[in-house]
Deep mutational scan, measured.
Amino acid sequence: VSEWTEYKTADGKTYYYNNRTWESTWEKPQ
């Protein structure tokens, strides 16, 4: 699942961004 990158927002929430599909999600990808 290497295309997903984990980021943190300014208020400390974690989200995930897909470099291949430009998708972002709050849930941890499978």
Results as ranks from 00 to 15, higher is better:
1 V>M: 14
1 V>S: 12
1 V>I: 13
1 V>H: 14
1 V>Q: 14
1 V>G: 13
1 V>K: 10
1 V>R: 11
2 S>T: 11
2 S>V: 07
2 S>K: 08
3 E>M: 07
4 W>S: 00
4 W>H: 01
4 W>L: 02
4 W>G: 01
4 W>Q: 01
4 W>I: 01
4 W>R: 01
5 T>R: 09
5 T>S: 11
5 T>G: 05
5 T>L: 10
5 T>P: 00
5 T>I: 14
6 E>M: 08
6 E>R: 02
7 Y>Q: 06
7 Y>P: 00
7 Y>S: 06
7 Y>W: 10
7 Y>N: 06
8 K>D: 01
8 K>G: 02
9 T>D: 11
9 T>K: 02
9 T>A: 07
10 A>W: 09
11 D>T: 07
11 D>L: 06
11 D>Y: 06
12 G>D: 03
12 G>M: 00
12 G>Y: 00
12 G>F: 00
12 G>P: 00
13 K>D: 08
13 K>S: 06
13 K>Q: 13
13 K>C: 14
14 T>F: 07
14 T>W: 04
14 T>K: 07
14 T>A: 05
14 T>D: 01
15 Y>Q: 03
15 Y>T: 01
15 Y>E: 03
15 Y>R: 04
15 Y>N: 00
16 Y>H: 01
16 Y>T: 00
16 Y>Q: 03
16 Y>G: 00
16 Y>E: 01
16 Y>S: 01
16 Y>V: 00
17 Y>F: 15
17 Y>S: 03
17 Y>L: 10
17 Y>T: 07
18 N>T: 01
18 N>W: 03
18 N>K: 03
18 N>I: 01
18 N>F: 04
18 N>V: 02
18 N>D: 02
19 N>V: 09
19 N>P: 10
19 N>G: 07
19 N>F: 08
19 N>Y: 09
20 R>S: 12
20 R>G: 11
20 R>Q: 13
21 T>M: 02
21 T>P: 03
22 W>D: 15
22 W>R: 15
23 E>P: 02
23 E>R: 01
23 E>Y: 06
23 E>G: 02
23 E>M: 04
23 E>H: 03
24 S>D: 07
24 S>R: 10
24 S>N: 04
24 S>A: 12
24 S>P: 04
24 S>F: 15
25 T>L: 09
25 T>I: 09
26 W>M: 11
26 W>T: 12
26 W>A: 10
26 W>V: 10
26 W>F: 15
26 W>H: 11
26 W>L: 08
27 E>N: 07
27 E>H: 10
27 E>L: 08
27 E>T: 11
27 E>G: 04
28 K>N: 10
29 P>D: 05
29 P>I: 05
29 P>F: 06
29 P>N: 05
29 P>H: 04
29 P>K: 03
30 Q>C: 15
30 Q>Y: 10
30 Q>G: 12
30 Q>D: 14
